[in-house]
């Protein structure tokens, strides 16, 4: 028996919007820790890891570990039927091949349930080793989204370089080149507007902009984004989900042949 009640139902809609461009089908894993997911895109270049901790739910009952295979577009179709202020409850019985999403309006005058068929998904669960990152950049998520969008109109790949001067995003394409440098800036009115660079040593890595643009679909989940870089390692782009957990994206770098 599984019953997860999330008062802030719109959060689940945002989580789905943040993943469905990258991943079609995925297993949602439910345990005492929380509601989580790990999935790769079809070309195995990017990986998304989601955690919504059990403490973040108003009610969390998960009698035994359960893995539920879902098509994210179908799940999104169902969640779009929930009002933005609705409370969403996810329910499943042991041994059944469906999951129920229950939507309650804030004043309880409308209650809907949508039952979705589950699917069998063969997915590999990768072990992500702990890493020391050479540079960690925290910046406003809207700023990062803007940079990825702007650069992708010029080129297909971005070089992200962190030095003492700041973090530089560079691209090149048929029509020309572009460089955007963001300097550390802690003197802002609100902490979420700061750009903070923790650098152990300079690092420079190349990534496909297409994937980074997909990651920025998570922008509505968090005011800030953290980008962790180390040479020879996938970049980690993390959006913290307030009170609940995180959505992390890992992207394999483009490397010299």
């Amino acid at each position: 028996m599984l019953e997860l009640r999330l008062v802030q139902g719109s959060l689940l809609k945002k989580v789905l919007d943040a993943m469905r461009e990258l991943v079609n089908d995925a297993n949602f894993d439910c345990s005492a820790t929380g509601f989580s997911l790990q999935a790769m895109d079809s070309s195995h270049v990017a990986l998304v890891a989601l955690l919504l901790r059990s403490e973040g739910f108003e009610h969390y009952r998960c009698d035994r570990n359960l893995s539920m295979g879902m098509n994210l577009n179908n799940m999104s179709k169902m969640l779009r039927c929930a009002g933005n202020d609705d409370i969403i409850t996810i329910k499943a019985d042991d041994g059944t091949d469906s999951v129920t999403f229950m939507f309650e309006s804030p004043n309880q005058d409308k209650i809907a349930d949508f039952e979705m068929k589950l699917m069998d998904i063969d997915s590999e669960h990768l072990g992500i080793p702990d890493a020391e990152y050479q540079a960690i950049v925290r910046m406003p998520s809207s700023e990062f989204a803007r940079i990825c969008k702007d650069l992708s109109s010029i080129g297909d790949t971005v070089v992200i370089s962190v030095t003492k001067e700041g973090v530089k995003f560079s691209t090149a394409g048929d029509i020309g080149t572009a460089n955007i440098v963001c300097r550390q800036n802690k003197t802002v009115d609100k902490p979420e507007e700061a750009t903070i660079i923790e650098m152990q040593e300079p690092v420079s890595l190349t990534f496909a902009l297409r994937y980074l643009n997909s990651f920025t679909k998570a922008t509505p989940l968090s005011d800030t984004v953290t980008i962790s870089l180390s040479s020879e390692l996938p970049v980690v782009v993390e959006y913290k989900i307030a009170e609940m957990g995180y959505i992390r994206y890992y992207l394999a770098p483009k490397i010299e042949e």
């Binding site: 990768l126 072990g127 996938p234 890992y250 992207l251 394999a252 010299e256």
Partner: peptide, 14 residues
């Protein structure tokens, strides 16, 4: 020329 690497090259498959 840079080649796109795969995530599976970095993370282990237990």
């Amino acid at each position: 020329v840079r080649k796109q690497s795969q995530i599976t090259a970095f993370f282990s498959n237990p």
